[in-house]
Amino acid sequence: MDLETIKITGPYNFDGVLDRISRDPLNVLNLEERSIKIPIMIEGTPIVAKVTAIGTTNEPAFTVSGIDGDHKEQALNRVTHLLQWDTPLTEVNNFFNNTDLKEIFEQHKGTPLILDFSPYRALLKAIVHQQLNLSFAYTLTKRFVTTYGFEVDGVYFYPSPEKVASLQVEELRELQFSNRKAEYMIGIAKAIVEGTLDLDSLHNKSDDDIMEELIKLKGVGPWTIQCLLMFGLGRPNLFPFADIGLQNALKKLYNMDRKPTKEEMEEYIKDWEPYLSYASLYLWRSIE
């Protein structure tokens, strides 16, 4: 089996990445080995790429295996994009040195904004996570994927849009989905199958255009779209005001006896543009 070795510009804290994503039971990783298996689809072919860290935060390096064959170059490009190896963090770190987030960025130096393994997965995951506590949201997502998805090399792939579109609300209810959440999941899958929702086309659209397009979907609100933009598409300037975790992180940062108002949050974030997604990520890290 071919083994690709990749060296990138630091800082890049892969151990912090593994720690953060280890809460999701669908992620297959080994903290001691410093590795993760990434499920990716290339032209309908499921591929499991294993990424292992062999470097340090300041001098990051990795090996990638499992991507032999016709789709090798495409798979390696996908891994590079998902793990944001092509986005050096030096400029972001330097930017926040002159802000209220300086200490948080120093504490979690080199934490990249890694992406969910596909925009489709990011959107469905965001729907499941709506208005649920994190633990149950992960449990519900795991039930959904292990029941209707498929497994390759010990890693689960999300069920295809065609599979989800064929489900009945009652089937998802048996997994403890609410009626509404089940309807939203099936509705989004049907929109993809029918061609009214083209997730691949979103890469070439602006944040505002994507918000305008997706807000029309039943069950999709601003928070869900912001999660997709941030973790599905890697957009750098998102700050989900309605996110309880961010509210709690700001409460802690500014030693408040209550959660901040939206007006207060709008004032705080003025100094953090155009990297609001990184501000969000590091604030989440500060309370995890």
Results as ranks from 00 to 15, higher is better:
N93L: 09
K163G: 00
K109C: 14
Y156N: 01
V128H: 10
T99Q: 07
S178P: 10
K181A: 05
T111F: 12
E73P: 00
V79M: 07
T139L: 07
R180S: 13
D70I: 08
G195D: 06
Y158C: 03
E170Y: 09
Q176R: 14
G149E: 04
Y184N: 07
V92H: 01
A122T: 13
P112G: 06
E162K: 11
R180F: 12
K102Y: 13
K181L: 05
H81W: 11
V145Q: 05
A191H: 11
Q176F: 07
F95V: 05
L167Q: 05
P112C: 03
F95I: 06
H129C: 09
V193M: 02
V92M: 01
T147F: 00
T111S: 14
S118E: 10
F105L: 13
N97P: 08
K181D: 08
S135Y: 02
V92P: 00
L167S: 02
Y156K: 03
E106G: 15
K181I: 06
Q107V: 15
L132R: 14
N98K: 11
F96R: 01
V169T: 14
V164M: 10
R143A: 00
L76E: 08
G69D: 09
A191S: 15
E183K: 09
F150Q: 00
R173T: 06
Q74N: 09
V169K: 14
I186N: 03
L172A: 06
G195F: 07
L115Q: 11
L123T: 04
T80A: 00
R173H: 02
T99V: 06
Q74S: 13
A126G: 14
I104W: 07
A126Y: 12
H108Q: 11
Y184S: 08
H129T: 09
A137F: 02
T90D: 12
